[in-house]
């Protein structure tokens, strides 16, 4: 059964309709990659899934329950669906550790002492053990992004969304962040990624969706979509980026 199912999602900013009826299904443990040109609606779709943007029409089903219903409290949903952003968005006035502890403490009401073992394990898992007391501006882009991932994981989300998380990084730092995603993939995390890393999508995705002008024009297993795209626009996009 689908963990996450989107039907007919529409979202406009003023007169600009960014998502024009998107249908998407994500199964348990699946990794879905969204590809497409800038402005095709990938980021907006992810922000809608996390309820950071209210949608204009359609449904978002999480385990069969519509989470996009107007008037519904978005807080419990956001605890179940984590998101990591392109520009890290760490809180600059807090150390890496404080960034990670804030939400579990305030939202779940857990104590620092109770959290420390698992949080330390997360930092260690992503090679950040010696960076816990550093402030964001003392960390490299790759380290900041890994802390942002740890911060999201500390809320033990069931689904993770990644919004072009390597796009703001220097090329030599992209690898360390992609390794984190590989690790999560091996762990069976359900993930939706907006990405420009075609090689990565081809290697690891279960399903690749090509977004064009606010709709999913074509989707399929990476081997199929990358080698035999059905649509002319998909072909044109792939020939530009591959």
């Amino acid at each position: 059964m689908a963990r996450l199912e989107v039907r007919g999602l529409r979202k406009s900013f003023g007169a600009n309709e960014v998502c024009r009826g998107i249908d998407l299904t994500v199964a348990e443990g699946e990794m879905v990659c969204l590809i497409g040109a800038s402005g095709s609606g990938k980021s907006t779709l992810l922000r809608c899934l996390n309820l950071l943007e209210p949608i204009d029409d359609g449904v978002i089903l999480l385990d069969g329950v519509d989470i996009a219903e107007p008037g519904l409290d978005p807080q419990p949903v956001r605890q179940r669906i984590g998101i990591v952003f392109q520009s890290f968005n760490l809180f600059p006035h807090m150390t890496a550790l404080e960034n990670v502890l804030l939400a579990p403490r305030r939202v779940r009401g857990r104590t620092r002492e109770a959290l420390m073992p698992e949080v330390e394990a997360l930092f260690a898992r992503f090679g950040l053990s010696d960076r816990m007391e550093h402030y964001p501006d003392q960390l490299s882009g790759g380290q900041q992004q890994r802390v942002a991932i740890v911060r999201a994981l500390a809320m033990t989300p069931e689904i993770m969304l990644f919004d072009e998380i390597t796009s703001a990084l220097d090329p030599e730092l992209v690898g360390e962040v992609l390794d984190v995603l590989r690790d999560l993939r091996a762990d069976g995390m359900t993930m939706v990624l907006a990405t420009h890393e075609m090689g990565f999508a081809r290697e690891l995705a279960d399903k690749v969706c090509f977004l064009d002008a606010g709709t999913i024009l074509e989707e399929g297993p990476p081997a199929e979509l990358f080698s035999q795209p059905r649509h002319e626009r998909t072909r044109a996009f792939l020939s530009r980026v591959l």
Binding site: R47, N50, L52, P74, Q75, P76, R78, Q79, G82, I83, F85, S87, N89, L90, F91, P92, H93, L102, A103, R106, V107, A148, R151, A152, M155
Partner: peptide, 28 residues
């Protein structure tokens, strides 16, 4: 705005977002 989005996306309430994320930075 991205600071607010990041805080809310973690499940923090509006008031906790203001108290722990926005205000400390704004006051400084």
């Amino acid at each position: 705005q991205s600071q607010r989005a990041a805080a809310l996306s973690l499940g923090l309430s509006e008031s906790d977002t203001m108290r722990y994320v926005i205000l400390p930075q704004a006051i400084r």
